[in-house]
Design a protein around this nucleic acid. Sequence first.
DNA 1: CAAATATAATCGAATAATCATTCGATTAAA
DNA 2: TTTAATCGAATGATTATTCGATTATATTTG
Lengths: 195, 195
Amino acid sequence: MRPRDDAKEARIRQKAIELIVKLGFDGFSMQKLARAAGLSPSTLYVYFKNREDLLLKLYAGVQEKFERDALTGFSETLPFEEGLWLQWKNRFKNICKNPLEYRFFEQFRNSPLVRHHVPEPVAFRTAMNLFVRNAVRSGSIRQLPLEIFWSLAHGPFYMLIKFHLDQSSMAGLPFSLTEQKLKQAFLPVLEALKP
Amino acid sequence: MRPRDDAKEARIRQKAIELIVKLGFDGFSMQKLARAAGLSPSTLYVYFKNREDLLLKLYAGVQEKFERDALTGFSETLPFEEGLWLQWKNRFKNICKNPLEYRFFEQFRNSPLVRHHVPEPVAFRTAMNLFVRNAVRSGSIRQLPLEIFWSLAHGPFYMLIKFHLDQSSMAGLPFSLTEQKLKQAFLPVLEALKP
DNA sequence: CAAATATAATCGAATAATCATTCGATTAAA
DNA sequence: TTTAATCGAATGATTATTCGATTATATTTG
């Protein structure tokens, strides 16, 4: 019996993300993917049940990787400022290292496909929420509904990321995010969250 | 000579947005649109040069409407707190009144199509930036790079909108945004921006 | 004012390309 | 020897767009 080639599946996934970021979901097709990955269209169906299954697994894979990497060095018991800053730094690094994956992720999340996505175990989310509860209990931050808290704690971050990836130029020059600028936004966010 | 039917074009635009929100760009086709709008596929090409032209004009139309409505009652010379709160309220109302348009807008902005979009006159953006300059000069807020300022001033808002439209449930119940909750997020944002 | 004309809107059908998926034959490795 | 991976080709459906015929209306003419 012939074994399934893990490297081949990884190549398919990688090429799929590249194509989708370049062409969008509507420009993306199984035949184009097969050509880009250097194999026959029918081989794709060995690794994925169909097109939708491929897209959903792509999304699940990217999400899992981003969440795992965001937890590097993290603990719910970290002091609040330190823990939140670590989250910002981890996510910033991961997005910079995998910009295509992030663009794919955002494209997927804003498409109707996301409704077919089977949600993952809530481990990541509960870790984050535990972190907030500890911070409230220790008096580091004020008590707020979770959605409001996270919008304050991460909203600015993700808008900076958007500016960065779009190379947006609000002032004269195209914007490029650095860890220093990240910090410049982080300190005011702390002010917003203080009790 | 037979006149062009403005109501028909409006119906096409409306149905197109509905279909795209429901099916995504890849599920959306000219034939489906024709059927939904109750006309022949070829009639679409009277009103739009081709599929891409349709999508770009759809986007431009939605953007223009959102920006125009966001300026209702607004002036660059408004006191900072009042002006920013008006922006939040205006945008919140418009999104609640036109959720499909907003979803389409976000889907488009996160797709590669956005690169083919010819940017509009910068009137809106410069109005906003003038507003910030005035606020800095009057000492209402601290001086920050524009991108950092806007990420602080609007990042939390748009994340709340996302929670609202996704009916996200971080706590037990699905999240639904109200003007009161909006205010609850707005006050800390002011803290973040104070000098 | 009524009738004729001009013209763009509209339609249904057709075109060629591309789509997702399948199938039978072949290949490679356990 | 067995068996799943792989392939090339084929399937029928759907795609964007076009075309010639028809329709409706604004304008001009009688």
